[in-house]
Design a protein around this nucleic acid. Structure first.
Lengths: 340, 340
DNA sequence: ATGAAAGCGCTAACAT
DNA sequence: ATGTTAGCGCTTTCAT
């Protein structure tokens, strides 16, 4: 067992161990072409006992094909993105393709770096969150010559194609539902993230539809960092101290909404009679709360699945047709905190 | 603008565009060796206007170096792992290294596949969750010849080195704290996952320490799938219906513990007087609950950071010394649901 | 059914 | 400071 040589094994080692040419070994290992059962077995045996792991770097360089799909998202901790990932993985599982994740932390600079890094591995496709990117990022994506699916947002012009929802529309619909229910004094609570375009679009759609109903957002409150649940409590308390009259609170995500809900229940407020609440995303967590927070499903898993399907079909057939924009339509879940 | 040729750009294109040899272009792009400011500027200019993105596949094959660290974890949705990832990323950010994530869904078969897949890209190091692996996986890791850090768990013998906590000890310490507080009729609530070794070790340590105090777990309840918060409620109701005498509930994670807490508060139970509760992990979410659930921090970010540091130092210097086991010691957070 | 030769796009090592 | 040569470990293509 003198294992002096830490050099990784190559096809050649397997070739020598099995007494078959490298080419035949390669064929066996990739299930390609005709190989007799005898040699096939011999090669597999040799590869296994040696513990050979093929070198994909060399393989990719030679074949000019890389079965990787770059997935670029703003964050891992957002609850939203693990679900998108799950949708993507579920679809790619049935193909040769593999997702590789990069995280941008919501900054265009990091997005650019991550994109550059990933493209330098020559993936077969890109799935990237959002439809706003730096000029340099867009240029890279266009120049890459591979399928690019922008996800989560359809309010804008995609580079190649997009799957998502219209956040502006989502905001509008929630506003209409709130007005329909008769609420008039409305507060908005969100994140202090200028670069969260989707949250901003929801807010824009929201105020726009309120305006059509002759209503204005009465008070706002923003946060950053920390436990979203806790922040939701604190913000709710703060906004109501400044404006006790508020009869509806629209939260830019479910976590802060859940915090607000818990806080108001403790205060003994009558929900949704005295004050109504709504969040956004439709996270699983809501199911375990004392009341079901009104929300709107962001279609996360579905977006992931659709995006992966587009990539898979276009990788298989570069001439495959595809919709340049797929807009999914989220439904309002009224739960127990929004009259209807 | 006749962009007929979808062939990706190569070093040669930049070389021709800038009138400098490929080698010099390569040097500029990697900031290696001496290059005059003039040529440097010229090359950078050419690369930028062309939109050249280097081909890392070719680079890696030529240089025999890949600045990737394979990170293999059971799941993305567990809250635990995004935090470990954050620790890893934070450290690798300051190096040339980049994390690449693979997910095993808690199955040894998938772990084996993912590991094989990742090793075939010849990463510079591996960070892998858990210390239990199939023989084939262990063989691959040993044969890889690269630094391997097993994380989260130190109860066992690492392949190369490990950073984590002793879950057995964590279970024991919680049991002792519970006994110290005078609780006697103890229920356990956990996941139906035979392959979650860490949860099992906590349970083993827990029962062992209880036994030393002459106490046995009175009743158990397990779940799988669905909203953990909701399941926590349901399980708590179920276990108390079967055994109303219980005066303490130990949950194998904070999410189900939080569900239990919400449920019991609604029932008007006196916590921690009438019944005590504890979870495990120390998730951020707990801060926003009506009461702080007792828990034990799993040191997630710290584990990620330490693991990444080990990899980084050993990649820089293959002869760097390192501890083969780093055991972190989590502290009990008593919160409001465990007397002390 | 199997093998031999060429080359993928880069970088190490050695010139100059 | 810059260029030349060889070759990384595979797969493609073409022979046999």
């Amino acid at each position: 067992m003198a294992d002096d040589d830490p050099r990784p094994l190559t096809l050649r080692d397997v070739s020598e161990a099995s007494g078959v040419s490298e080419m035949t070994v390669s064929r066996v290992l990739r299930n390609r072409g005709d190989v007799s059962e005898t040699t096939r077995a011999r090669v597999l045996e040799a590869a296994k006992t040696l513990g050979y792991v093929p070198n994909k770097i060399a393989g990719a360089l030679a074949s000019q094909r890389v079965n990787l799909v770059a997935v670029i998202i703003p964050s891992m901790r957002n609850m939203v993105f693990p679900e998108v990932m799950a949708g993507i993985s579920a679809v790619l599982e049935d193909t040769e393709l593999q997702p590789v994740v990069g995280v941008t932390d919501y900054t265009p600079e990091k997005e650019e770096r991550v994109l550059y890094e990933m493209l330098s591995w020559r993936p077969s496709g890109v799935i990237i969150a959002g439809i706003e990117h730096s000029e340099a990022s867009k240029a890279m994506l266009r120049a890459s010559g591979i399928p690019v699916v922008e996800i989560m947002d359809t309010d804008g012009k995609p580079i190649d194609c997009a799957v998502g929802i219209s956040h502006r529309r989502a905001g509008r619909e929630m506003a209409r539902a709130i007005l329909r229910a008769g609420y008039q004094k409305i507060g908005f609570l969100g994140t202090k993230m200028p670069l969260d375009y989707r949250a901003r679009k929801r807010f824009e759609g929201f105020t726009e539809a309120l305006a059509k109903g002759g209503v204005e957002v009465m008070e706002q409150e923003f946060y950053s960092g920390g436990s979203a649940l806790k922040k939701g409590r604190e913000m709710t308390q703060a906004i109501l101290e400044r404006e006790p009259e508020l009869d509806f609170l629209y939260y830019s995500n479910d976590m802060i909404g859940a915090g607000g809900l818990l806080y108001l229940l403790e205060q003994g407020r009558d929900i949704p009679g005295d004050i109504g609440l709504a969040g956004f995303n439709g996270v699983e967590l809501l199911e375990g709360l004392p009341r079901r927070l009104a929300t709107m499903d962001a279609c996360r898993a579905e977006i992931g699945r659709k995006a992966a399907e587009i990539i898979a079909s276009r990788v298989n057939d570069p001439d495959a047709s595809f919709d340049s924009v797929i807009e999914l339509t989220p439904k309002i879940a009224y739960g127990d905190t929004l009259r209807h």
